Each structure stands twice: as C-alpha cells, then as structure tokens.
Amino acid sequence: MKKNPEQRIELHGFNNLTKSLSFNMYDICFTRTKEEREAYIEYIDEEYSAERLTKILKNVSDIIGAHVLNIAQQDYVPQGASVTVLVSEGPIVEVPTESFHESPGPLPDNVVMQLDKSHITVHTYPEYHPSDGISTFRADIDVSTCGEISPLKALHYLIHSFDTDIMTIDYRVRGFTRDKDGKKLFIDHNISSIQNYIPEEIKKDFDMIDVNIYQSHIFHTKCRIRDFDLNNYLFGYTKDELTKAEVEEITEKLTTEMDEIFYGTNMN
C-alpha cells in the first residue's frame, strides 16, 4: 500500500503537535411570556443535561481513539451544564490513513481509530433577552488532541448531536514536533478549509464564511442556517395562531438575532 508523505516522515520521539477544535453552536427561540421562557430553559436543561453531554463527549473520545481517565460533570442552577473529560493515549492498532485527508469523520457506529489525546470539554449557556422575547442557547465544545489525527474528525458527529441555527468553528495547530534530523514540523497534515470536514448534506443547509490564516495554521468557519421557517422557532405553538403583523415582527426579531450572532456585531 502506497503511503502518504505524512506517514513516511520519521519523527524524533513522539508527535507532540497540539490540534485544537472549538465548536460553538447556537439555538434560537422566540418566547412570548415569562412562562414560555422558563419552559424553554427547562427544556434545554433537560435536553442538554450534564448526563447527556457526557455521553456525547464519550462518543467524541471514541471517534478520536482516546482512553478516558477522568470525567467531571455538573448541572448548574438556575441553568447550564459543564463536562470535562481528561483523556490519554489509546493503543495504536493501525495508522489511521484516512485522518490525513480532508473529509468528514465517522459517527460512533463505525469508529476504528486509535491515537494519542489530551482533553475534551463542553459548557452550555442558556440565556434570554430581558424584554424582546428572544431566548438563545449556546454550547461550547473544545477538543484538544496530540498525535496523528485531527480532532476535526469529530466535527461531523458534533454537528449531528446538536440542533443548530448558527455554528462557529475554530481549528488551530500549535507547537511543533521534530523529524529524525531535528527539523521542526509545525503541521503534519494538509488542510485548506474546515468546510472539507463537513458532509455535503449538512453544508447545503448553511451559508458559510471562512477566515483562514494559513501561515499560522489557524482556520475559522462560520455557518448560518439557510432556510428560515418560523414554526421552528416558536415554543409550544405555530405561526397559524399569530396575526400577519405578529409574524412579521417576530421574524424580524429572530433574523436580526441570528445575523448579529453570525456577523458578531449589534445591528440597528
């Protein structure tokens, strides 16, 4: 079998490049009353409890071939949850050749990769506008690995695990490792865009923007859901129960909220 150039490189010691993936997702909802807002927050806290988030992170650790050393999880009052998974090297059964290619990673039912790791964390932030009827749920997931595979291989599963309107994804390779002659290697795989790790059936649903600094091995992709159906953003009722004026007002509030998050600026 012909090997990729990356596989033929002989290292001095182990591969100690650190590859960090930050996946930030947002779910937007319109809540007319205090009761609706409290019900939405309760739903989010139940849907994304520390227990369920722990299961998601365990599956991520399987995908990147990690051995779990310790798990710390916490549900917060009045809302939100956090999970931290400390992971270590797993037995390398076979060089994961597919990890060198820009392509979506597997889902948990077909995981075969094993390699070195460090940690995975998630924090959730349910919140709401004090007077405008907008409720927003944000989850921040960080996957940091050492070894041959990129944590971007977990991105497909992370998107699969959350109902997202907006995603902000950052990937960075830090540090360096050395080949057997002492030459520094600041990255050990080719990457042109985070988008190449997202399946086509998901990409067609989002508008995307890339901001990449190739010479620094920093990659950034923002995704905003393309099709807007107001019924997906109402909690406990449908738009058929609203007047035309209400539909227009709520639609404007929701789309403005999504634009502000996507572009990272307040809009008048």
Score class of each variant (00 low, 15 high):
residue 4 N to Q: 15
residue 7 Q to E: 15
residue 7 Q to R: 12
residue 8 R to P: 06
residue 8 R to T: 14
residue 9 I to R: 11
residue 12 H to R: 14
residue 12 H to V: 10
residue 14 F to R: 15
residue 19 K to F: 06
residue 27 D to Q: 06
residue 31 T to Y: 03
residue 34 K to R: 14
residue 34 K to A: 12
residue 40 Y to K: 05
residue 47 E to M: 09
residue 54 T to K: 06
residue 56 I to T: 10
residue 61 S to C: 13
residue 61 S to K: 08
residue 62 D to E: 13
residue 65 G to H: 05
residue 66 A to G: 12
residue 70 N to V: 04
residue 74 Q to A: 07
residue 75 D to M: 01
residue 75 D to I: 03
residue 76 Y to P: 06
residue 80 G to P: 00
residue 80 G to Q: 02
residue 81 A to K: 01
residue 83 V to I: 10
residue 84 T to Q: 13
residue 85 V to N: 07
residue 87 V to C: 13
residue 89 E to G: 13
residue 90 G to K: 00
residue 92 I to C: 11
residue 93 V to R: 12
residue 93 V to D: 07
residue 94 E to N: 07
residue 104 P to Q: 03
residue 105 G to C: 03
residue 107 L to N: 02
residue 108 P to W: 08
residue 121 T to H: 05
residue 123 H to S: 13
residue 126 P to G: 00
residue 126 P to H: 01
residue 130 P to W: 05
residue 131 S to K: 13
residue 136 T to G: 04
residue 138 R to L: 05
residue 139 A to S: 12
residue 139 A to C: 08
residue 143 V to M: 07
residue 144 S to H: 12
residue 151 P to K: 11
residue 155 L to Y: 03
residue 156 H to I: 05
residue 156 H to N: 12
residue 160 H to L: 03
residue 160 H to R: 04
residue 161 S to A: 09
residue 164 T to Q: 04
residue 165 D to L: 10
residue 167 M to T: 06
residue 169 I to Q: 04
residue 169 I to H: 00
residue 171 Y to V: 01
residue 172 R to F: 12
residue 173 V to G: 08
residue 174 R to A: 13
residue 179 D to Y: 09
residue 180 K to Q: 14
residue 183 K to R: 15
residue 186 F to S: 11
residue 186 F to R: 11
residue 190 N to Q: 12
residue 190 N to I: 12
residue 193 S to D: 05
residue 196 N to F: 10
residue 203 K to M: 13
residue 204 K to E: 13
residue 205 D to T: 05
residue 205 D to K: 11
residue 215 Q to H: 15
residue 221 T to R: 02
residue 222 K to N: 06
residue 224 R to K: 11
residue 225 I to M: 04
residue 228 F to K: 12
residue 228 F to M: 07
residue 233 Y to F: 14
residue 236 G to K: 06
residue 240 D to N: 08
residue 241 E to F: 14
residue 241 E to V: 15
residue 242 L to I: 09
residue 247 V to G: 00
residue 249 E to K: 14
residue 250 I to S: 08
residue 251 T to I: 02
residue 256 T to F: 01
residue 257 E to Q: 11
residue 266 N to C: 12
